[in-house]
Design a protein around this nucleic acid. Sequence first.
DNA 1: AATTATTAGTTATGAGAGATAACAATTATG
DNA 2: CATAATTGTTATCTCTCATAACTAATAATT
Lengths: 172, 172
Amino acid sequence: MSRTGAGKPTANIAAVAQREESPQVSDATLCGFIGYHMKRAFNVVQADLNQTLKPLGLRMVTYSALVLIVDNPGLRQSQLAAALDVERANLVVIVDELERRDLISRDRVPSDRRAYALNPTPAGQHLYERALEAVRGHEARMLNGMEEETKQAVIRAMSRIRRGSEGGSRGG
Amino acid sequence: MSRTGAGKPTANIAAVAQREESPQVSDATLCGFIGYHMKRAFNVVQADLNQTLKPLGLRMVTYSALVLIVDNPGLRQSQLAAALDVERANLVVIVDELERRDLISRDRVPSDRRAYALNPTPAGQHLYERALEAVRGHEARMLNGMEEETKQAVIRAMSRIRRGSEGGSRGG
DNA sequence: AATTATTAGTTATGAGAGATAACAATTATG
DNA sequence: CATAATTGTTATCTCTCATAACTAATAATT
């Protein structure tokens, strides 16, 4: 503990010099990878999107679920889970949340009484539209006047990356 | 992980009709947003990258940390935490992991005995090069012959999205 | 020099998302 | 009817991340 109390800081100048010597960290190597840029950019998008959705009481995943239910009324939880790429077990709490807020309803399917058909309520439809408007604003903020051509090029590139992992058969 | 068994749809007519009525879920609305494409594509990239790094005993974050330490020898944990955008508290376990495997060393900074200077060991340097090679292969697999011009356009777009959130009050 | 404030690293704890296994109810198959 | 497969559910476990409190050392102030 008590080292001889002679520790006199004659290294004041050295400390200052060192602080100015390495003020920033180089990420040049990582910047060579497109995945690094995707992660950093997506972090920003995700944070802003969650802030955008918070006033509506939605998270990214509940928002996506609501949109898919409105766009595909009557779909089943297993279909929604597959579309969202989450396990059915984890989807239960998501659907619970939407149902508890009366944004959607679980309706039994007559032809298969195991399954629930998910349908939006009027409140869900209304929130869907409000959320879509908010997310459009969020996207405009993120892209900030990016040229349409650039946007489309990014979408094509992302789709290509995504498709590259979906089996080996070439599709259109 | 997600097996959708098409199987034998030889059931009663109602079930077949319904199954053919909505065989797939439309995500057309979400596809209008670039953030949706970014998320889906990044999920694919992240999964493949983790698989790529697993044989090396690395995860995305430990890989990134190792690269930054090799590229910036002597940097401190707080600098690394800022560069990785994680809390200092959470960085401790990451650095612990790298140190335990003798990939890096915590060296005391003479001018500031609170801080540790992070430096790669020869083993760390070696793994760095192996990891970089593996990740280059991973990227080539993900991009799959994408034109260099397209890649650069994506990187510019991602950088622009990321920069858009970094305080706008700079007059540079 | 002594006191106070700030900084670097650490520990402990809890929230959150995600994966997995086991289960009941229903349907399909033999 | 017996068996298998599917749908939704519950419980559990892991992993990541955020927060607060703490120790040690430095900086700033008196």
